[in-house]
Design a protein around this nucleic acid. Structure first.
Lengths: 352, 352
DNA sequence: CTGAAAGCGCTTACAG
DNA sequence: CTGAAAGCGCTTACAG
């Protein structure tokens, strides 16, 4: 072995051009050994380890996850399919999941669908994640249906998070929309309202919002309230039916309006105020979500979703799935939120 | 060739177990041909195309992006490194970038650092994206420094978005923090304030917030205002120095407080109100950001960042970089925001 | 328009 | 504790 005959390194240049072979050569070990010290759990003498680490540092080596993913037939990457990053509840979910995943020694990559493109784009996003052959899949969008997930259940652990789930083979950690809806409906009834508009998005638009809305409406009806159910099946907008509600208020047909999300409630508030209505004098408002900062300043009556709780549990379940080869029983958790009182919900103004 | 001798398909099962070879076999073509119809830009007879598409559908084939990424030495994936999904401005940025990237025929994957872990974790996130050998890199966090990016500039197109950038080799599309800071400072001066607290996060905490804060402070000083500069170098919290500011208000040392973000401003408002102060009577407040929904309800005086504009431009620049092999000149765009008046900024109460 | 074959950068039995 | 070699599932010249 002649030290003088150093063959020219193939990539003089950039760190991303440095391969494991380059590291091996510099450290004077085999590629297998470099791989072992990177992975960390195979036996390597500490002397060798040091040599290799030194070489990696010197070359600025960034391991090619694409290549290792292929060779190892899988990776520690957990993929998150997230509905809409503009919505604060998803933003918080994203953040907490990242923290938890990282604590579990896994890595997270996130994919979001284009907004307002509907189900096609959501499926594209799903395939993007699957194409990357992630080790686990966290699905946080109700737009993707169980049906779309079914074909992949045997190949990759899937947990659906923050969305309705009752598929017998998909474990779910979600919000208890029935309870959330009931809590809000109760408060509206207790405030004295007897005629209420409820916005109910179609199942295809959002399973969660749909379920929440349905729960609110049916709970109200159960209490003998006159419900004006405002169905909407428009994808990607938060203001559909607001005009109709404003009209109902003007006609004194309702004294309160319930929205399945804070976002919709806030959007309505702006429109209503622009239309000259005052809240809660002309109409009481409730939302659902409770995550956005500064909500207490606005005083929106809402239910605060247990986002952290759901994120923590979902990640724990995923980590468990990834650890145990034995799948463990599929289960469905539902976590209820807590009511946040606010000045947008008052007793109806007498005389209306 | 005996049709009867169909060799057993290696993966009887799941779509993710189906390989290109399986498709090729079913369609009775070579693997190369399957690859060609998937990529779409190589000449394939439409008869063959149909056979292949049919076979893919039948098998539920999901192409392995990992393998193709390795073979093709690169992919159409654009990686986004995003600072903090809990902040509405980042959420919106994320969303718009996704839409734009998708319009350009590229795909986006996002990685976020764990919150409150500081620079180490941000670097981990950067390496995660680089390890995936993304085709382009969008960096939207001021925590990563130019220095950290430098080694990779030769291997992958990088554009920094929404963050200060003046590296001669990194093109940047960002907010004009100097102008934003000046606009706000001007309004505060014009409202009549003469003694003002300004929160200035350290450069290491956030380059953008730092620059904004410094701009506010120096602009105020230039107008002869008494500035109480509240430096903070705590990572991951939005309430540092709030106590001190409340004290200054109580001691009648200041009549206004300027925050580099809406989030900080809102957090302060809650604390101040809890401490019995009233806004703007006891102290006027300004933020910066202007993205969160319902802000108009709160009435926070702020600057609305041109997030959409920045996202669109950044993606356009990236698409350009990816298209042209010739790099084109590096440049730095800065986009200024617009002032949003609000009831948190009034003239100082006489007698204070 | 189509196929055979080399090769992308790793991991992992297998054999020392 | 370490190395030689096969193979992961694709792409892409190259040769028809």
């Amino acid at each position: 072995m002649t030290d003088s005959a150093t063959p020219p390194r193939r990539n003089g240049g950039t760190p991303l051009g440095v391969r494991m072979d380059d590291v091996a050569e510099l450290a004077q070990v085999s590629r297998a050994t470099v791989s072992r010290v990177i992975k960390g759990y195979a036996p390597v003498s500490s002397k060798t380890q040091e040599k290799v680490n030194q070489a990696m540092r010197e070359l600025g080596y960034v391991p090619n996850l694409i290549a290792s993913g292929l060779a190892a037939k899988g990776s520690d990457l957990v993929g998150l399919l997230l509905r809409d990053p503009r919505v604060p509840a998803y933003g918080l979910l994203h953040s907490v999941i990242q923290n938890e995943v990282s604590k579990s020694g896994l890595e997270l990559i996130t994919v979001v669908p284009s907004s307002s493109e509907g189900v096609t784009d959501e499926l594209d996003s799903l395939h993007r994640l699957l194409g990357l052959r992630v080790g686990g899949l966290l699905v946080s969008t109700g737009v993707i249906k169980d049906h779309d997930l079914e074909p992949f259940l045997d190949s990759v652990p899937v947990v659906s998070v923050g969305r309705l789930e009752d598929h017998p083979r998909i474990t779910g950690v979600s919000y208890d929309e029935d309870v959330n809806g009931s809590i809000l409906a109760d408060k509206v009834v207790m405030a004295g309202h007897r005629s209420v508009a409820v916005v109910v998005p179609a199942w295809a638009v959002s399973t969660g919002e749909n379920r929440r809305g349905v729960a609110m409406a049916s709970h109200l009806r159960g209490r003998g309230i006159d419900v004006h159910q405002m169905d909407t099946d428009i994808f990607g907008t938060w203001t559909d039916r607001c005009d109709d509600i404003i009209r109902l208020v003007r006609d004194k047909q309702i004294t309160a309006a319930m929205f399945p999300t804070d976002t919709r409630a806030l959007a309505f508030m702006s429109l209503a105020q622009a239309a000259g209505l005052s809240i809660p004098k002309d109409v009481s408002i409730t939302g659902c979500d409770g995550i956005a900062m500064g909500l207490e300043q606005i005083g929106l009556a809402t239910v605060k979703l247990p986002v952290e709780e759901v994120a923590v549990r979902a990640t724990a379940v995923m980590a468990e799935l990834l650890r145990n080869s034995a799948p463990g029983p599929v289960h469905h958790e539902r976590h209820a939120g807590v009511f946040i009182p606010g000045r947008t919900l008052e007793a109806p103004t007498p005389g209306r």
